[in-house]
Amino acid sequence: MNHPYWVAFSSIVFKEVRRFMRIWQQTLLPPAITMVLYFIIFGNLIGSRVGTMDGFDYMQFIVPGLIMMSVITNSYGNVSSSFFSNKFQKSIEELMVAPVPNWVILLGFVIGGVSRGLACGLIVTALSLWFTDLQVHNIWVTLSVILMTAVVFATAGLINAIFATKFDDVTIVPTFILTPLTYLGGVFYSVSMLPEVWQWVSKLNPILYMVNTFRYGIIGISDIPIFAAYGMLFLFMGALMSWALYLLHTGRGLRS
């Protein structure tokens, strides 16, 4: 694979991976510590009083959601902070003057974000084995949904960074939109426990579909039909990637 685009793509990905590995104390360690606390407090201490959820131990029920939560926040956070830092330091100009097509830039940053998301997901999965037994119900569903979710949120992170003009702008979306949607996305509970109207409202939250499909892949239960989840993931991937490409093409936030 010596095509210039492939070399440029792998250069971007390598740079992104090197960045989050270099600052692992900020990128890989915090999600590990946070998730261990979730396992101890929600899974062990509170979970032992909650009993079972849809026929599974509470710990077994929440682990897929917590893995997914870590993948979502880290895929998003990696691209939004890295791309914005590149903009802020003007080092994005290194890419803008080079003969790298916009779709290569997009894919490079997205795969960089996906790499960190999956690395964190893997760390959290490994840590969860201290607290519960994990048996994968459907490996293909598990892998495909986590990969597609990481791609969706890494792309969303890039769009956030393109619009951002200051560092506050890359923290607003995760704090006020991503975290609430994740908590309300069925990580800690089954939506079937909610009154019917709130079940309907919950189904407007795309993260609910991702969490439930991943949970289906791990333990074989889901509150929603998994094909609907795949449909939504494809829709989001297509829409967000098209939007990001359009923004890169117009030079929004990059070229005056």
Binding site: V7, A8, I12, Q89, K90, S91, E94, L95
Partner: peptide
């Protein structure tokens, strides 16, 4: 360019190798 526009946390050699990669140099 007029203003410094490289990643200040990258090593000198890495900056050049990275840029060469953007131009398709193996």
């Amino acid at each position: 360019p007029q203003e410094f526009n490289f990643n200040t946390f990258e090593k000198v050699e890495d900056i050049l190798i990275q840029q060469a990669g953007y131009y398709g140099l193996r």
